[in-house]
């Protein structure tokens, strides 16, 4: 579709032609393959944007020893799927380190759903961790993404069928047999 700047009236008239964007998060611990999944399903070259953390991160980021450092950057990988001319789906790989959890506030807001990736090879027991402690409790030694499971959507959407998580063919993910998280 052509969106020539000269066709649009100044102001907000052009918004009628603009596609609507929705957001799906790809969450999971450090190194489970979020970036891999984004790059597998995205129609564009996966992009990376950075957000500068300023004093917002105080108390979240451990600044001991680096007190002089007042800013740091967090990278987010994201991809895009164009459903049709009026609907864009953006996939955001959230930062896996738990010290970047404050970013969830903006990332989660308005998200249609989330896909939680977990590395089953690293689990010491059969019971998977809940989403709320996923990033923090996962052993950092397990980097293998060979047996990555696709978790459930974090945000319940009314009217959405329970089988709404599509199987990702191009990455080595398989749907989880059970809901890994015991959250309400």
């Amino acid at each position: 579709m052509e969106y020539g700047p000269s066709d649009s009236e100044p102001g907000h008239d052009g918004t009628e032609e603009l596609p609507t964007a929705i957001k799906i998060l790809i969450a999971g611990g450090f190194g489970v393959g979020k970036t891999t999944m984004v790059s597998s399903v995205s129609e564009i070259e996966p992009l990376r944007t950075e957000e500068v953390i300023t004093d917002q991160s105080l108390g979240v980021d451990d600044m001991v020893g680096v007190e002089a450092k007042t800013t740091t950057t967090v990278a987010m990988d994201f991809g895009r799927i164009t459903v049709d001319s009026g609907l864009l789906v953006y996939l955001f790989g959230t930062p896996g380190q738990d010290r970047f959890w404050f970013m969830w506030d903006e990332l989660v807001y308005g998200a249609l759903g989330a896909i939680v990736l977990a590395d089953t090879a690293g689990w010491p027991t059969a019971s998977p961790p809940s989403t709320s402690s996923n990033a923090g409790t996962r052993p950092s030694s397990s980097r293998s993404t060979a047996s990555t499971a696709l978790g459930a959507t974090r945000r319940r959407t009314s009217g959405s069928p329970s089988t709404s998580i599509p199987t990702c063919r191009s990455c080595s993910a398989t749907p989880a047999t059970g809901n890994p998280a015991k959250r309400s």
């Binding site: 799927i81 789906v89 063919r169």
Partner: peptide
């Protein structure tokens, strides 16, 4: 011109949800 993302209030639109699911499945 800016278009804000779809808000939660508008997410109840089943047609949009189905379009998303079908679109992702068709990848």
């Amino acid at each position: 011109a800016v278009r804000a993302p779809m808000t939660r209030a508008r997410q109840s639109n089943k047609r949009v949800l189905k379009a998303v699911i079908n679109g992702i499945r068709a990848l």
